[in-house]
Design a protein around this nucleic acid. Structure first.
Lengths: 121, 121
DNA sequence: ACCCGATACATTGGCATGCGATGCATTGGA
DNA sequence: TCCAATGCATCGCATGCCAATGTATCGGGT
């Protein structure tokens, strides 16, 4: 335990977010963008150029499965978590917690050094 | 307020960590590695191939200043935060908090969907 | 009838980051 | 005498993020 934190988390934290949003319910790309935006108070935007390659990676890794829906005029590709994806999500979530705790501990220490900023606006 | 979170934070969170460790006291590279490792319960390793380019970037950005010390047998390059660096650190720390809160909120929601893992070990 | 923004998929190219591998030099202890 | 630790640095690869771009459909306003 207390292994070294995989830096994969730093770069690929978008993966974690996408997996967690998909865990709530299956979604197609465009809907995923909206959902992530909504769930983050419009703070996190997932651009198409980031999302589609990401989804393809997740699928290739077997973490999500996709299915086309042509029943409506709009061609939609629905993605949903696989069992493997859920496992991965749980694991990544734990790693994230570890990582966040580390950073928070560091930031807590610097507050002792750096005077609190005048919190205006 | 509630601006979109700069993804810079995801990729460059090493910057934040280095700045925060340097905020405690000036350090040279090798010492910085040890300090970061210690402050993170050996969870975060900063490889030389990551650190030195990073320090050079920070210096070029005016966030840290460096000074060679040849008084001992070991040639050491000491780095310390500049005023600009401290400002940046405070700002980045705030952004990190926002980001972490977003992720945590997402992860909290999935706990309602995914059964809690049997916490063994 | 027409236009245009929203919806919906996707790729491409540039840029930055993280890091293993490698290199060089010195110090100090076994 | 040798080797690990100390201490700096660069290079090249893999990867990720994203703006720009492309294609196509739908629906509402005029």
């Amino acid at each position: 335990m207390a292994d070294q934190i995989e830096s994969e988390l730093l770069r690929g934290s978008m993966d974690l977010m996408v997996l967690s949003v998909l865990a709530q319910s299956p979604k197609y790309g465009y809907l995923l963008q909206k959902a992530l935006s909504d769930n983050s108070q419009q703070q996190i935007k997932l651009s198409a150029g980031t999302m589609y390659p990401l989804l393809h990676r997740l699928e290739e890794a077997g973490l999500v499965s996709s299915r086309w829906d042509d029943s409506t005029g709009r061609r939609r590709k629905w993605y949903e978590l696989t069992a493997k994806g859920r496992k991965k999500l749980v694991k990544q979530a734990e790693l994230w917690q570890q990582y966040a705790n580390c950073i928070n501990r560091l930031l807590t220490e610097i507050k002792l050094v750096i005077p609190a900023p005048a919190t205006q606006s």
